[in-house]
Write a protein that binds this DNA or RNA. Structure first.
Length: 279
DNA sequence: AACTAGCTCAACCGCGAGAAG
DNA sequence: CCTTCTCGCGGTTGAGCTAGT
């Protein structure tokens, strides 16, 4: 007969987390690792539901998280990925180490959207606004779907190879307007994205510097992290390759913090040309 | 100084997919 | 095979902050 409900919502605390709750959750995960979220609040002595604990951990407490504003380079990555994936924030986040889907989603809605509109680009379609407006005025043209086999190199970069979806679906217009016509309709597994090795290569070839915005903007609420001592048997299997007994600062610094702080992309030209074909 | 409007982002909500019983 | 649950995701909300008047 199924399982027990994840949490009976009676008597559970909601709203902002206190430093004490953070400490309890952090200590519990660091000691026991991530297991069954349903059991976490009970075992950690928290009056929260498992879902809330998971969210707090993934969006705020995880030691590999980068804090602060997204760098220019990260922003460009987000835009590029969004043009291919749409609002699949978790997929986008998986290509930006140390960033969460929530963070990227918020940044998109509050910063990038405006920025793109200001530049005359529709954040939804990634097309120039003038064209989007034209499209809105014209009656919607029916698009006819055709299937095109993926090129080999593209297939190799697929993040989650699928047996059934090795085809890119193109929407072919019924008129002659090439630009408006080509509307790539990627399947979730079909997007040709960089693999981690390629990303590493890019990072290692780029000028690395620790950005002031990412490394020093940590929230005061999480300052206790710096005092946390990691248990001797704790393994960072999911968060990097650091050896045991390292403090939070070292782990974050050695593995993640500066990975994406690439300062040598000062203009948007590269992005514009690669993503939108502009400039 | 007081009020208001706009902005930011942490947290919640509801849903779907897949797993478990 | 069906029901129930867990997990993860994307959309939305609202408290707190800031800038403008």
């Amino acid at each position: 007969m199924g399982r027990q409900p994840c949490c009976d919502k009676v008597g559970l605390k909601k709203g902002p987390w206190t430093a004490e709750e953070d400490r309890k959750l952090m200590n519990f995960i660091l000691t026991n690792g991530q297991c069954c979220w349903r059991a976490v609040p009970k075992l950690a002595g928290l009056l929260r539901c498992g879902k809330s604990c998971r969210l707090r951990w993934t969006n705020y407490l995880r030691p590999d998280l980068k804090r602060g504003l997204l760098s220019d380079y990260e922003e460009k990555m987000v835009i590029d990925l969004h043009s291919q994936l749409g609002n699949r924030w978790s997929k986008i986040a998986s290509h930006l180490p140390g960033r969460t889907d929530n963070e990227i989603k918020n940044h998109w809605n509050t910063h990038i959207k405006k920025k793109l509109r200001k530049m005359g680009i529709d954040p939804l379609t990634h097309k120039p606004l003038s064209i989007v407006e034209q499209e809105d005025e014209e009656p919607v043209k029916k698009l006819q779907k055709v299937q095109v086999p993926l090129q080999e190199p593209v297939k190799k970069t697929l993040e989650e190879p699928s047996n059934t979806k090795n085809m890119l679906t193109l929407e072919e217009p019924q008129d002659d307007d090439q630009f408006m016509a080509m509307n790539l309709d990627y399947g979730l597994e079909d997007v040709p994205l960089m693999d981690p090795e390629s990303l590493e290569l890019i990072c290692s070839n780029s000028t690395m510097s620790s950005s002031t915005s990412t490394s020093s903007n940590s929230s005061n609420d999480s300052s206790f992290l710096k005092d946390l001592q990691f248990p001797a048997d704790f393994e960072w299997s999911d968060y990097g390759n650091s050896s045991n007994n390292e403090g939070v600062d070292n782990i974050i610094e050695n593995n993640m913090m500066s990975l994406w702080d690439v300062d040598d992309f000062s203009s948007w030209d590269l992005l514009l040309s690669s993503t939108f074909g502009l400039v």
